[in-house]
Computed example of a mutant assay.
Amino acid sequence: MRKQTINLITLSIAGLLSASAFAADYKLKIQSSDPSGDLNFKVQQQWAERVESMSNGRIDIDLLPVGSVVKHTETLGAIKMGIIDGHITATGYFSGKDPAFGLIGNMVGAWSDTTQLLQYMNYGGGNELMTELYAPYGVKFVGASTTGVESFVSKVPLNGVDDLKGLKLRAPEGLVQQVFAAAGATPVNLPGSEVFTGLSKGVIDAADYTVFSTNQSAGMNDIATHPVQPGFHSLPLIDVSVSQKKWDKMPEDLQTILTMSVRDLSYDITTKLKMADNEAVAKANQNPNITIHNWSDVERKKFREIAKTQWKVFAERSPNAEKVYNSVTTFLEENSLL
């Protein structure tokens, strides 16, 4: 009997130790701005699993698709209020809180490749600026990612800036609409969920939507058969951020794991999306009804010159927006990218 009792006690202690060893020290409920079926979200799920593995189970990330808890435009406030613990999202969604978020979130026409934006963020002062911008909201900016230079969906041939004149196009509010309006287009407010229907019914002729592979898989190119690829306008900043309170409670080694894991995430997303885009372009080229338009360097430069005038106008909307404008343009000039 005594031996049996000792064995039971031993098993109970072992069970407690086992449970303790596998219990996460820090649980993070993080909402993405991507739907669960997107490649972006799948890559983010792999990132969450890696963080758990790298931290030996001490960090447990519950990654939720867009709209699971709050709207995609409300995650910044939701983190501050403790409704969620973090987000992976397009920074530009918060331009309503400060135009600076719209400017750094998508400085239309500034970046021609994902490496340029990530170099600015990681080595050109972007990360430090985002840390400063998020501080008043009780949010810790962990790191930067992006997707890819977005394609452009169009029902009519677009070979340059002149073809934008009078074009009814869907574009998000803020700087994107402002730049296209300056180029002579007629921007239309339309949620992303209504782009396909809007194109089908002739409400719009074209759309600033997302990367080529996503457009292709969604059937956009089948109804808007004149896509522009590579894109010439949009490269959104995607930020990974968490509650400052949660961050401050973490030991330094876990903070380092999270920080470095985001750099790994950014490489994964940009690389896999580029591969997916290449496959989608090859597939689209097999369809005789689809004509892919690739703007010349001359036309891309024309569009950028228009965009540059609007950067400056947009920067006048807030002191923080002016900081973003000065920071980004300085980086572009110093690296011969302007």
Results as ranks from 00 to 15, higher is better:
residue 19 A to P: 02
residue 206 A to W: 09
residue 254 L to H: 11
residue 239 D to Y: 04
residue 208 D to T: 13
residue 81 M to E: 15
residue 80 K to V: 03
residue 256 T to N: 14
residue 237 L to D: 06
residue 206 A to E: 03
residue 165 K to Y: 13
residue 265 L to W: 01
residue 47 W to A: 11
residue 194 E to F: 08
residue 155 K to I: 13
residue 321 A to Y: 07
residue 18 S to I: 04
residue 188 V to C: 05
residue 316 E to S: 15
residue 84 I to Y: 00
residue 165 K to C: 03
residue 5 T to A: 14
residue 303 F to H: 10
residue 173 E to L: 11
residue 201 K to F: 13
residue 26 Y to H: 06
residue 335 N to P: 01
residue 327 S to V: 04
residue 147 T to E: 02
residue 229 Q to W: 14
residue 122 N to A: 08
residue 139 V to L: 05
residue 288 P to S: 06
residue 323 K to A: 09
residue 12 S to G: 13
residue 278 N to C: 04
residue 273 L to F: 00
residue 268 D to S: 08
residue 161 V to T: 11
residue 53 S to T: 06
residue 267 Y to H: 10
residue 263 R to K: 15
residue 158 L to S: 05
residue 108 V to K: 14
residue 142 V to R: 09
residue 1 M to Y: 07
residue 325 Y to W: 12
residue 60 D to I: 01
residue 141 F to T: 09
residue 195 V to R: 06
residue 47 W to Y: 15
residue 229 Q to I: 11
residue 40 N to G: 02
residue 14 A to Q: 14
residue 19 A to F: 15
residue 223 I to C: 01
residue 295 W to K: 11
residue 127 N to V: 02
residue 217 S to E: 09
residue 217 S to M: 12
residue 10 T to Y: 09
residue 118 L to H: 02
residue 18 S to F: 15
residue 314 F to L: 10
residue 266 S to N: 03
residue 179 V to N: 11
residue 85 D to Y: 04
residue 219 G to L: 02
residue 24 A to G: 04
residue 336 S to W: 10
residue 286 Q to E: 14
residue 267 Y to S: 07
residue 18 S to M: 08
residue 109 G to T: 12
residue 183 A to N: 06
residue 127 N to Y: 06
residue 296 S to L: 07
residue 112 S to C: 00
residue 292 I to S: 02
residue 314 F to A: 13
residue 232 F to T: 10
residue 203 V to Y: 12
residue 193 S to G: 11
residue 98 D to Y: 05
residue 6 I to K: 12
residue 79 I to S: 05
residue 188 V to F: 04
